[in-house]
Structure formats: structure tokens, C-alpha cells
Design a protein around this nucleic acid. Structure first.
Lengths: 182, 182
DNA sequence: CTCCTTATATATCAACTTGATATATCGTTT
DNA sequence: AAACGATATATCAAGTTGATATATAAGGAG
């Protein structure tokens, strides 16, 4: 059984564009990637060591003037590892929405509790959607750029699904209000 | 800091409807809940023991004729624990879509690889959407039933977002094909 | 009637992820 | 010079996942 850590692929993917430190990777993940994947120092740093031992990445710059700083770059074998993963059509896609869980079990509480939970969700989505639209507008201008195109497609996925979420929120709130309140 | 295990809430939520064994719970989760939450024997059984020690649930039927079988029911304090969680507006909602990750880093491979990955995703969604629509049609007939209403809302969320996914798939494939193939 | 397969049922574990915390330096502001 | 936030690496407890182990029951095939 080969290595299964998905964070490895995130790291290799990021390094396929430019050399980065672990800290930088975390920032990239917290930027655009966070909408569909996650990462933490707790798995980035251990993974960096393993990938280095594997020969998938190498240190390309180390500054030890006071604060330690280690930049990594991807190797040829690392790039092949990344490509192999991309060509593997298997992919786990899963949602983990506590809001829906609360909705599903909402029957033991009053309707306004569920109603409120939906509103909180709605506001969060509204904010994120605005952000995604801003990203999208910038990227749209240069889709000829390969990287922009791929980036744009993920942003566009977010926009489309968040818009669907908001429509659903309105519908759900209406359905909840249609019944006798409390 | 109180207990944070979300599986506890799934168990309490399920038991708020009817007594169940751990095995039954897993089946329920694999049915409708799997679209927005997950659970495994690996966290169900340990959680059952802890919830029993807490007094949140009690055994209500144990058969030891050969095969052991333990049914649990929720207690008053367990129900209050569930309600408290429902009233807490904090909720973590996160997507973990490997397909989008592969799309994001797809630039290092040929376009048809990304195209194929989207098609695999599309087919999976199409199948799940059909299933959700079947669920939805049954539930729609009796939304006066409180439990059906909550169940229906989660199914409806799935339908709406999956429809948005499919539209996005078509758009994404077109955009990828618009560029020079390979 | 026995063998085989599948479903029922509980239990456990290694591997992975998460979010918090620890430690220390650097840059900017007060 | 003190305070604060950003940079940077590292580690850990707690939770989740998917697989595996163990054993019984039920149903059908030969």
C-alpha cells in the first residue's frame, strides 16, 4: 500500500509552482485552497521531513541567521509522484456540514432554533461568496494563463455552489416558517 | 473544555428517534446522513461506552443468546445534551473535495487528465443526485410530519447543490476544451 | 445435510487530521 | 525600550477513518 497522506499532494502541488517554506505553504492553503481542502502545521512539517527523505523534495535555501528558515523545491521524482496522483481517477469527495447535522436532528428543538442555525450559515456563506466573486473577477481577465484557468475553475465551483446554498437557505427558511411557529 | 466528539451528537440524535444498536446506527449513517456527515465503528462503539458512563444513554435491551446485541436508548440528560448542541450556533462546515484539489494542481498534467477527472466526478454526482431525488419525492408527500420536514430539508440541500455541481461540470469541461487540447 | 456466502454484531488499531500550544526571532509602532 | 503582531519551526492530545479481527445467524446451492 503506497503512502496515503493527501497533504503530501498539497505540498507537491504547491511546490510545482514555486519554492516555499512550510510556513508559506500554510498561508497558501489558508488562502484559496481552504475552500475545498485543509492543512495544518501539524501535518505540513512532518510531511516535509518524510518527503525530503523520499527524495520528492529538497531544501533549496536555508537561512540560519537567527531565525531558521527552510525553503523546499520539488524534485523530478516528486513531480512524477504528483502527476501519478493526478492521473489516478479515484478521489474522495466529502462534505462535513455540522449545520446540516443540526438541521437533520432539529426536530427535538423548537423551529426557531433551526431557523436561526440556517441564518448563521447563510451569513457565513454570503461573506465567503463575496470574497470568491472578487477572486473570480480578477482571474477571469486572464484565462489564457494555464494556472489562472485551473484556479478559476475551483473558484467558479465555489461561487456556483454557494449561490445554490443561498437559494436553498431562502427556501428552507420559508418552509420552516410555513409551519406553526413553536 | 467540554467533550467535542461530534459522533456523540450523531448517536444522541439517532437515539432521540428510536432505540438502536451500534450496528444499526452505522446503517443509518450510511443511509441518508453520509451525504453530509460520516461515522465508523471505530468511533461509534467507543463513544457508546463513554455516553453510557456519562449517563447520556442507557442499555435498554441486551440479548446474549449466542450473538451479543446491545440496544441503547437516550436519557433525559442525553436529550438535554443534544438540545444544548442544537442551540449552539457554532458549526463547522467544511468541504474536502479531492477532485477540486486535483483540478487546482492540474496544470502540471495534460488538459485531458483534468477533463477526465471532472467527468468521473460528474458521473458520481449524477448517480447520487438521482438517489436524492427519489428520497425527496417520497418525503415531499408528508412535510407536515416534523421529522420528514427536517429530513427533506437536508435532502433538498443535496439536490440543489448537486444540480449546481452538474452545471459547473458542463461549464468547466467547455472551458477546458476551449483551450488547445493537450 | 453440509458447505458457502452474506448479513449481523461488537471491538480494536494504525494512520491521518486538527487545532492548540510552545519556542524564538523579526519588524513596526507607541 | 516595551509591546505587539507577523514570521518560522515543532510537537501533541484528541478526534476521525478505514481496515481488520472475531463470532454468530440466515439463506441458498449442491
Amino acid at each position: 500500500m503506497p503512502r496515503e497522506k493527501k497533504i503530501d499532494m498539497v505540498i507537491l502541488g504547491l511546490l510545482s509552482h514555486e519554492p516555499l517554506t512550510g510556513y508559506d505553504m500554510k498561508k497558501r492553503i489558508d488562502g484559496a485552497i481552504r475552500f475545498f481542502w485543509n492543512g495544518s502545521f501539524g501535518n505540513i512539517y512532518p510531511s516535509l521531513k518524510e518527503l525530503e527523505n523520499n527524495g520528492s523534495i529538497t531544501r533549496c535555501e536555508v537561512t540560519s541567521d537567527g531565525r531558521e528558515k527552510i525553503s523546499y523545491k520539488i524534485t523530478a521524482s516528486g513531480k512524477e509522484e504528483l502527476r501519478k496522483w493526478l492521473r489516478d481517477e479515484q478521489a474522495s469527495n466529502e462534505l462535513k456540514y455540522e449545520t446540516l447535522l443540526k438541521l437533520f436532528f432539529g426536530g427535538v428543538e423548537e423551529k426557531n432554533v433551526t431557523y436561526h442555525n440556517i441564518e448563521v450559515f447563510e451569513n457565513k456563506i454570503r461573506g465567503d461568496l463575496e470574497m470568491l466573486r472578487t477572486y473570480g473577477k480578477v482571474l477571469e481577465k486572464d484565462l489564457e494563463n494555464e494556472d489562472h484557468l485551473h484556479y478559476y475553475l475551483t473558484v467558479s465551483f465555489g461561487i456556483d455552489s454557494y449561490e445554490a446554498y443561498l437559494k436553498w437557505c431562502a427556501k428552507a427558511k420559508k418552509l420552516l416558517n410555513g409551519r406553526a411557529q413553536r
